[in-house]
Lab assay of single mutants.
Amino acid sequence: HSHMSHTQVIELERKFSHQKYLSAPERAHLAKNLKLTETQVKIWFQNRRYKTKRKQLSSEL
């Protein structure tokens, strides 16, 4: 499990705020920019979407 830097997370968050789903080319581009693997980016987005979904569910209770 590799640790992401604060800067990388900020960039991922910024991208996520604009779009929740990335196409393969977008993911490849973002990964390259942030010096991450595409898998890391993919998993981060999956986890981030899951967290957002959970938060929405709990706020509706």
Rank of each mutant, 00 (worst) to 15 (best):
H1I: 08
H1E: 09
S2V: 10
S2Q: 14
S2E: 09
S2K: 14
S2H: 12
H3L: 09
H3V: 08
H3W: 12
H3R: 10
M4C: 10
M4D: 03
M4S: 01
M4V: 05
S5Q: 04
S5H: 04
S5V: 03
S5L: 05
H6M: 13
H6G: 05
H6Y: 10
H6N: 08
H6T: 07
H6C: 15
H6A: 12
T7E: 14
T7N: 10
T7F: 15
T7C: 13
Q8H: 03
Q8C: 11
Q8L: 04
Q8Y: 01
Q8R: 04
V9F: 07
V9W: 13
I10Q: 12
I10M: 14
I10F: 09
E11M: 09
E11T: 05
E11Y: 06
E11Q: 10
L12T: 03
L12I: 02
L12Q: 01
L12Y: 01
L12H: 00
E13N: 05
E13G: 02
E13C: 13
E13A: 04
E13W: 06
R14D: 04
R14G: 04
R14V: 11
R14L: 08
R14Y: 04
R14N: 06
R14A: 09
R14H: 11
R14T: 05
K15E: 05
K15C: 15
F16L: 03
F16R: 02
F16G: 03
F16E: 02
F16V: 02
S17Y: 07
S17G: 06
S17W: 07
H18N: 08
H18I: 11
H18K: 13
H18V: 11
Q19F: 05
Q19I: 06
Q19H: 08
Q19M: 07
Q19D: 06
Q19L: 10
K20H: 08
K20L: 03
Y21G: 02
Y21M: 03
Y21F: 08
Y21V: 03
L22F: 01
L22E: 00
L22A: 01
L22M: 04
S23L: 02
S23Y: 04
S23W: 02
S23C: 05
S23G: 04
S23P: 04
S23A: 05
S23H: 02
S23M: 01
S23K: 05
S23F: 02
A24V: 07
A24C: 07
A24Q: 12
P25E: 15
P25I: 14
P25Q: 15
P25R: 11
P25L: 14
E26R: 02
E26M: 05
E26I: 04
E26S: 03
E26H: 03
E26G: 02
E26C: 08
R27L: 14
R27K: 05
R27W: 06
A28I: 09
A28L: 09
A28W: 05
A28G: 05
H29I: 14
H29P: 00
H29R: 15
L30F: 05
L30I: 06
L30C: 06
L30R: 00
L30M: 06
L30H: 00
L30A: 01
A31S: 04
A31D: 00
K32C: 07
K32W: 06
K32Q: 10
K32I: 09
K32F: 06
N33P: 00
N33D: 11
N33I: 15
N33K: 15
N33Y: 12
N33S: 14
N33F: 12
L34F: 02
L34N: 01
L34S: 01
L34H: 01
L34K: 01
L34A: 02
L34Q: 00
L34T: 03
L34V: 03
K35P: 00
K35T: 05
K35R: 13
K35H: 09
K35F: 12
K35L: 10
K35I: 03
L36K: 00
L36N: 00
L36A: 01
L36R: 00
L36T: 02
T37C: 03
T37A: 03
T37L: 03
T37Q: 03
T37W: 02
T37G: 01
T37V: 02
T37S: 09
E38W: 04
E38M: 05
E38K: 04
E38I: 07
E38H: 04
T39C: 15
T39V: 08
T39A: 11
T39R: 13
Q40Y: 04
Q40W: 03
Q40E: 08
V41G: 00
V41M: 02
V41K: 01
V41R: 01
K42F: 09
K42C: 10
K42A: 10
K42G: 05
K42T: 06
I43V: 08
I43W: 06
I43T: 06
I43D: 08
I43Y: 07
I43A: 06
W44M: 03
W44A: 01
W44I: 02
F45G: 00
F45T: 00
F45W: 13
F45A: 00
F45Q: 01
F45D: 00
Q46H: 07
Q46P: 03
Q46W: 09
Q46N: 07
N47P: 00
N47W: 15
N47G: 05
N47S: 07
N47D: 07
R48W: 04
R48A: 11
R48G: 04
R48T: 04
R48D: 01
R49N: 04
R49F: 05
R49G: 02
Y50R: 15
Y50L: 14
Y50C: 15
K51R: 13
K51M: 13
K51Y: 11
K51S: 10
K51Q: 14
K51C: 15
K51N: 09
T52L: 11
T52G: 10
T52P: 13
T52Y: 14
T52C: 15
T52R: 09
K53P: 09
K53A: 12
K53T: 07
K53R: 12
K53Y: 07
K53V: 08
R54I: 10
R54P: 09
R54Y: 08
R54E: 11
R54D: 12
K55P: 10
K55V: 09
K55M: 12
K55F: 07
Q56M: 08
Q56I: 08
Q56L: 13
Q56T: 06
Q56F: 08
L57S: 12
L57Y: 05
L57G: 13
S58I: 08
S58Y: 06
S58T: 12
S58P: 15
S58D: 15
S58M: 09
S59V: 11
S59Y: 06
S59F: 06
E60S: 10
E60N: 10
E60C: 15
E60W: 07
L61V: 14
L61Y: 06
L61H: 13
L61S: 14
L61K: 12
